[in-house]
């Protein structure tokens, strides 16, 4: 649905993107996982036509590049910053955005989305009276007001409470299940693990690795650490087959406790970059 090839972009002497490439298909959530400043937002800005790359290309299905207004109709963007008119009500915000996208029945569409994000009872309240989590949900609704097949979510859970975060993640899963391609940037490893069909690890403007979470862990996460406590002391084993190691320890007898430390995306990131995700 969207194919990004060899994007390069510099701002002065700072190279923000250095050959970034990825693709996302309908029904999948592609996570762009990386620390702040890795180049995730720049990549999204190019994907939405906000910035022109120095080189490389973005192709949206058969519609062409996102600088073309017709191709941009295929994209929905929820920017990292909450981008809403605080002095308008939630419904007015969505109706306005629906109108500029040429949606047929903007009021009905606005109410559908408000219902979807659980804000219909507050539809007539001005956005400035909303909590951070409510504004985040509305920010997401605003991105899909024209029902785009490609949705780009730039850290959509930044600064929200756990309950709102859970609601947003469920909504993203639902959007993907409905057949949309979702590109989701985050520096929260847990979100990527929970949501993403595939993850691209981004750092210093480059995609270091791409794949499903198990694939990435298998390729870059290293061995699991199995710790078997026995009366004579703890025995630590590094292995790629931790279950087999546990079976063996149980068969030998004497084990009082068993603990497995499996590699995760944090481990993957550490292995790929030599530093932690939130350093």
């Amino acid at each position: 649905m969207i194919r990004v090839t060899e994007l390069r972009k510099s701002f002065g002497s700072v190279r923000a993107l250095d050959g970034v490439g990825f693709h996302a298909e309908r029904g999948e959530v592609l996570g762009l996982l990386g620390p702040n400043g890795a180049g995730k937002s720049t990549a999204l800005a190019i994907c939405t036509g906000l910035i022109v790359p120095d080189s490389g290309s973005v192709q949206l299905g058969d519609a062409g590049a996102p600088r073309d207004p017709a191709a941009r109709r295929l994209i929905g963007l929820a920017p990292q910053q909450i981008a809403l008119y605080e002095d308008l009500t939630a419904r007015e915000n969505l109706v306005f955005l629906a109108k500029i996208h040429g949606v047929h029945d903007p009021v009905r569409r606005a109410d559908e989305l408000l219902d979807m994000v659980g804000l219909l009872p507050r539809a007539r309240d001005r956005v400035r009276t909303y909590s951070g989590g409510m504004q985040r949900r509305l920010n997401l609704a605003a991105a899909i007001v024209h029902d785009p097949p490609v949705i780009m979510l730039d850290e959509p859970t930044a600064g929200v409470d756990p309950q709102s975060r859970s609601g947003i993640l469920e909504l993203v899963q639902r959007l993907a299940a409905e057949g949309r391609a979702v590109i989701y940037t985050t520096h929260y490893m847990e979100e990527a693990q929970r949501l993403c069909s595939r993850v691209a690890i981004v750092d210093h403007g480059r995609v270091l690795a791409t794949g499903s979470v198990p694939e990435l862990i298998a390729a870059h996460g290293g061995e699991s650490v199995v710790t078997v406590d026995t009366p004579s002391g703890a025995r630590i084993t590094r292995t790629r087959e931790p279950l087999r190691e546990i079976e063996r320890a149980l068969a030998e007898g004497g084990a009082t406790a068993v603990r497995i430390d499996q590699p995760d995306l944090e481990t993957v990131f550490l292995a790929l970059t030599g530093r932690r995700l939130r350093d």
């Binding site: 109709r73 008119y85 955005l97």
Partner: peptide
Amino acid sequence: QRGTLVRLRVSPMS
């Protein structure tokens, strides 16, 4: 500053 310019620019509006 509000970030809404990004929304307008991503829309089909030139």
